[in-house]
Computed example of a mutant assay.
Amino acid sequence: MQKQQKKSRAQLLHQYYKYTGFYAFIWNNTKKAIMPLLLIIGALLVVNYRVMSISEMLLYVTQNFSKTFIFSLFFASESFLGLLPPDIFIAWTKTTEHPLLYLSLLAVLSYLGGVVSYYYGRTLLLIPKINDYLEGRMSKHIRNMQKWGGFLIAVGALLPLPFAMACLAAGMIKFPQRQFFAFAALRIFRFVIYGFAIYSALS
Protein backbone atom coordinates (compact mmCIF):
# COMPACT_ATOMS: atom_id res chain seq x y z
CA MET A 1 0.00 0.00 0.00
CA GLN A 2 1.45 3.33 -1.08
CA LYS A 3 2.26 5.76 1.71
CA GLN A 4 0.32 9.01 1.70
CA GLN A 5 2.62 11.94 1.04
CA LYS A 6 3.03 14.35 3.92
CA LYS A 7 1.55 17.75 3.14
CA SER A 8 3.87 20.74 3.07
CA ARG A 9 3.41 23.68 5.44
CA ALA A 10 2.07 25.79 2.57
CA GLN A 11 -0.52 23.13 1.71
CA LEU A 12 -1.59 22.85 5.35
CA LEU A 13 -1.94 26.62 5.62
CA HIS A 14 -3.95 26.72 2.39
CA GLN A 15 -6.22 24.00 3.74
CA TYR A 16 -6.64 25.82 7.06
CA TYR A 17 -7.51 29.17 5.44
CA LYS A 18 -9.91 27.44 3.08
CA TYR A 19 -11.75 25.58 5.85
CA THR A 20 -11.92 28.60 8.15
CA GLY A 21 -13.39 30.80 5.42
CA PHE A 22 -10.41 33.14 4.94
CA TYR A 23 -10.65 33.20 1.13
CA ALA A 24 -14.42 33.71 1.24
CA PHE A 25 -13.89 36.56 3.71
CA ILE A 26 -11.39 38.26 1.38
CA TRP A 27 -13.65 37.87 -1.64
CA ASN A 28 -16.80 39.10 0.13
CA ASN A 29 -15.08 42.14 1.63
CA THR A 30 -13.37 42.98 -1.64
CA LYS A 31 -16.77 42.95 -3.35
CA LYS A 32 -18.12 45.25 -0.62
CA ALA A 33 -15.17 47.61 -1.08
CA ILE A 34 -15.51 47.70 -4.87
CA MET A 35 -18.98 49.31 -4.86
CA PRO A 36 -18.03 52.38 -2.77
CA LEU A 37 -14.84 52.67 -4.83
CA LEU A 38 -16.87 52.65 -8.06
CA LEU A 39 -19.24 55.26 -6.61
CA ILE A 40 -16.28 57.49 -5.72
CA ILE A 41 -14.82 57.09 -9.22
CA GLY A 42 -18.23 57.80 -10.76
CA ALA A 43 -18.69 60.92 -8.64
CA LEU A 44 -15.20 62.13 -9.57
CA LEU A 45 -15.91 61.59 -13.26
CA VAL A 46 -19.18 63.56 -13.02
CA VAL A 47 -17.35 66.39 -11.25
CA ASN A 48 -14.51 66.16 -13.78
CA TYR A 49 -16.77 66.59 -16.82
CA ARG A 50 -19.63 68.70 -15.41
CA VAL A 51 -18.14 70.94 -12.73
CA MET A 52 -14.35 71.15 -12.58
CA SER A 53 -11.54 68.91 -13.85
CA ILE A 54 -10.02 66.67 -11.20
CA SER A 55 -6.62 68.26 -11.79
CA GLU A 56 -8.08 71.74 -11.23
CA MET A 57 -9.94 70.53 -8.14
CA LEU A 58 -6.82 69.01 -6.61
CA LEU A 59 -4.87 72.13 -7.51
CA TYR A 60 -7.55 74.18 -5.73
CA VAL A 61 -7.09 72.04 -2.61
CA THR A 62 -3.31 72.51 -2.83
CA GLN A 63 -3.66 76.28 -3.11
CA ASN A 64 -6.31 76.76 -0.41
CA PHE A 65 -5.35 74.26 2.29
CA SER A 66 -2.00 73.96 3.98
CA LYS A 67 -0.06 70.75 3.51
CA THR A 68 0.13 70.42 7.29
CA PHE A 69 -3.67 70.40 7.49
CA ILE A 70 -4.01 67.81 4.70
CA PHE A 71 -1.39 65.48 6.19
CA SER A 72 -2.92 65.88 9.66
CA LEU A 73 -6.39 65.07 8.32
CA PHE A 74 -5.02 62.00 6.54
CA PHE A 75 -3.15 60.78 9.63
CA ALA A 76 -6.23 61.24 11.82
CA SER A 77 -8.32 59.24 9.32
CA GLU A 78 -5.76 56.43 9.10
CA SER A 79 -5.50 56.28 12.90
CA PHE A 80 -9.23 56.09 13.60
CA LEU A 81 -11.24 53.66 11.44
CA GLY A 82 -9.87 54.90 8.09
CA LEU A 83 -12.95 56.93 7.18
CA LEU A 84 -11.40 58.80 4.22
CA PRO A 85 -10.21 56.90 1.10
CA PRO A 86 -6.38 57.12 0.82
CA ASP A 87 -6.70 57.23 -2.98
CA ILE A 88 -7.97 60.83 -2.86
CA PHE A 89 -4.85 61.89 -0.97
CA ILE A 90 -2.63 59.91 -3.36
CA ALA A 91 -4.20 61.80 -6.28
CA TRP A 92 -3.60 65.07 -4.42
CA THR A 93 0.15 64.41 -4.17
CA LYS A 94 0.33 64.32 -7.98
CA THR A 95 -0.50 68.06 -8.08
CA THR A 96 2.17 69.06 -5.55
CA GLU A 97 5.70 70.26 -6.24
CA HIS A 98 7.22 67.09 -4.76
CA PRO A 99 4.81 64.25 -5.64
CA LEU A 100 7.04 61.28 -4.78
CA LEU A 101 8.19 62.82 -1.52
CA TYR A 102 4.62 63.52 -0.42
CA LEU A 103 3.45 60.09 -1.58
CA SER A 104 6.19 58.54 0.55
CA LEU A 105 5.09 60.66 3.49
CA LEU A 106 1.50 59.47 3.05
CA ALA A 107 2.70 55.85 3.08
CA VAL A 108 4.65 56.39 6.31
CA LEU A 109 1.73 58.25 7.95
CA SER A 110 -0.66 55.46 6.96
CA TYR A 111 1.66 52.88 8.51
CA LEU A 112 2.01 54.98 11.67
CA GLY A 113 -1.78 55.39 11.75
CA GLY A 114 -2.07 51.60 11.84
CA VAL A 115 0.44 51.52 14.70
CA VAL A 116 -1.65 54.09 16.60
CA SER A 117 -4.77 51.93 16.08
CA TYR A 118 -2.86 48.88 17.32
CA TYR A 119 -1.76 50.56 20.56
CA TYR A 120 -5.20 52.13 20.92
CA GLY A 121 -6.61 48.58 20.90
CA ARG A 122 -4.10 47.46 23.54
CA THR A 123 -4.89 50.48 25.72
CA LEU A 124 -8.62 49.86 25.58
CA LEU A 125 -8.07 46.55 27.33
CA LEU A 126 -7.25 48.54 30.46
CA ILE A 127 -10.68 50.25 30.52
CA PRO A 128 -13.24 47.49 31.24
CA LYS A 129 -16.41 49.34 30.12
CA ILE A 130 -14.92 50.52 26.80
CA ASN A 131 -13.27 47.15 26.26
CA ASP A 132 -16.58 45.31 26.81
CA TYR A 133 -18.39 47.71 24.46
CA LEU A 134 -15.85 47.35 21.67
CA GLU A 135 -15.58 43.60 22.11
CA GLY A 136 -19.30 43.46 21.42
CA ARG A 137 -19.13 45.84 18.45
CA MET A 138 -15.99 44.28 17.00
CA SER A 139 -16.56 40.65 17.94
CA LYS A 140 -16.40 39.55 14.29
CA HIS A 141 -13.11 41.38 13.65
CA ILE A 142 -11.62 39.97 16.86
CA ARG A 143 -12.64 36.39 15.99
CA ASN A 144 -11.15 36.79 12.52
CA MET A 145 -7.93 38.19 13.95
CA GLN A 146 -7.67 35.24 16.36
CA LYS A 147 -8.13 32.81 13.45
CA TRP A 148 -5.96 34.43 10.79
CA GLY A 149 -3.62 36.80 12.63
CA GLY A 150 -0.87 38.32 10.49
CA PHE A 151 -2.48 37.37 7.18
CA LEU A 152 -5.52 39.48 8.04
CA ILE A 153 -3.24 42.44 8.82
CA ALA A 154 -1.39 41.91 5.51
CA VAL A 155 -4.65 41.80 3.55
CA GLY A 156 -5.90 44.95 5.28
CA ALA A 157 -2.60 46.65 4.46
CA LEU A 158 -2.59 45.76 0.76
CA LEU A 159 -6.25 45.61 -0.32
CA PRO A 160 -9.07 48.19 -0.09
CA LEU A 161 -10.19 46.74 3.24
CA PRO A 162 -10.40 48.42 6.68
CA PHE A 163 -6.72 48.51 7.68
CA ALA A 164 -7.34 50.54 10.86
CA MET A 165 -9.96 48.04 12.04
CA ALA A 166 -7.57 45.13 11.51
CA CYS A 167 -4.87 46.97 13.49
CA LEU A 168 -7.32 47.81 16.28
CA ALA A 169 -8.41 44.17 16.53
CA ALA A 170 -4.74 43.07 16.54
CA GLY A 171 -4.11 45.33 19.51
CA MET A 172 -7.18 44.09 21.35
CA ILE A 173 -6.03 40.46 21.18
CA LYS A 174 -2.44 41.51 22.00
CA PHE A 175 -1.04 40.23 18.70
CA PRO A 176 2.79 40.09 19.04
CA GLN A 177 4.26 43.54 18.41
CA ARG A 178 7.20 42.55 16.23
CA GLN A 179 5.01 40.46 13.94
CA PHE A 180 2.46 43.26 13.77
CA PHE A 181 5.11 45.81 12.70
CA ALA A 182 6.33 43.44 9.97
CA PHE A 183 2.89 42.65 8.51
CA ALA A 184 1.66 46.25 8.80
CA ALA A 185 4.74 47.49 6.87
CA LEU A 186 3.14 45.99 3.75
CA ARG A 187 0.92 49.08 3.83
CA ILE A 188 3.75 51.00 2.19
CA PHE A 189 3.61 48.74 -0.90
CA ARG A 190 -0.07 49.62 -1.32
CA PHE A 191 0.89 53.27 -1.80
CA VAL A 192 3.60 52.34 -4.30
CA ILE A 193 1.15 50.28 -6.39
CA TYR A 194 -1.81 52.65 -6.13
CA GLY A 195 0.45 55.66 -6.61
CA PHE A 196 1.72 54.27 -9.90
CA ALA A 197 -1.84 53.51 -11.07
CA ILE A 198 -3.30 56.89 -10.07
CA TYR A 199 -0.35 58.89 -11.38
CA SER A 200 -0.66 57.07 -14.71
CA ALA A 201 -4.41 57.82 -14.85
CA LEU A 202 -3.86 61.53 -14.12
CA SER A 203 -0.98 61.94 -16.62
Results as ranks from 00 to 15, higher is better:
142 I>A: 11
146 Q>Y: 00
108 V>G: 11
180 F>A: 04
56 E>F: 08
169 A>C: 04
43 A>N: 00
194 Y>W: 04
1 M>G: 13
198 I>L: 07
110 S>D: 15
133 Y>F: 06
44 L>A: 13
82 G>H: 13
152 L>D: 02
72 S>R: 15
78 E>V: 06
51 V>I: 05
2 Q>F: 07
15 Q>I: 01
173 I>M: 00
148 W>E: 07
44 L>P: 01
165 M>F: 05
55 S>H: 03
75 F>A: 15
99 P>R: 05
88 I>F: 15
122 R>G: 09
69 F>T: 14
4 Q>F: 05
63 Q>N: 12
81 L>D: 08
169 A>R: 05
18 K>T: 05
195 G>N: 01
47 V>D: 06
169 A>M: 02
69 F>D: 15
188 I>L: 11
120 Y>P: 03
165 M>H: 01
31 K>L: 14
49 Y>N: 01
144 N>S: 07
115 V>R: 06
155 V>E: 02
122 R>S: 13
142 I>R: 00
73 L>Y: 07
196 F>G: 06
43 A>W: 09
109 L>T: 11
179 Q>E: 06
198 I>P: 00
60 Y>D: 15
201 A>S: 12
93 T>G: 03
177 Q>C: 11
111 Y>C: 13
95 T>S: 11
2 Q>I: 05
32 K>D: 12
4 Q>A: 07
63 Q>L: 10
159 L>P: 04
72 S>V: 15
14 H>M: 12
65 F>E: 05
80 F>N: 04
62 T>Y: 11
116 V>W: 03
125 L>C: 10
143 R>M: 12
24 A>F: 14
111 Y>G: 02
164 A>C: 06
10 A>W: 13
113 G>S: 04
114 G>I: 01
9 R>V: 14
78 E>T: 13
104 S>H: 03
119 Y>R: 05
42 G>M: 04
153 I>W: 06
28 N>P: 01
134 L>T: 06
79 S>I: 14
12 L>R: 15
183 F>R: 04
18 K>V: 08
200 S>A: 14
118 Y>C: 00
129 K>S: 11
131 N>C: 08
152 L>P: 06
6 K>D: 01
93 T>Q: 14
6 K>G: 09
99 P>T: 00
121 G>P: 01
82 G>T: 14
93 T>H: 06
106 L>K: 02
90 I>K: 07
186 L>W: 03
34 I>M: 14
163 F>A: 07
162 P>I: 12
198 I>Q: 02
3 K>E: 02
152 L>N: 09
160 P>E: 09
156 G>S: 04
131 N>Q: 13
47 V>G: 10
94 K>T: 13
189 F>T: 08
153 I>V: 09
203 S>V: 05
149 G>Y: 00
154 A>N: 03
71 F>G: 15
185 A>R: 05
103 L>C: 02
161 L>W: 14
72 S>T: 13
86 P>G: 02
68 T>L: 15
129 K>I: 10
19 Y>Q: 13
51 V>D: 03
199 Y>S: 04
163 F>Q: 12
140 K>E: 05
89 F>N: 03
186 L>G: 04
152 L>H: 03
192 V>T: 12
155 V>P: 08
10 A>E: 12
167 C>N: 10
140 K>A: 09
1 M>I: 08
190 R>N: 03
112 L>P: 08
99 P>A: 07
96 T>M: 08
71 F>K: 14
179 Q>C: 11
28 N>K: 15
89 F>E: 05
60 Y>C: 10
5 Q>R: 12
47 V>H: 13
81 L>M: 09
167 C>W: 04
98 H>M: 14
59 L>C: 03
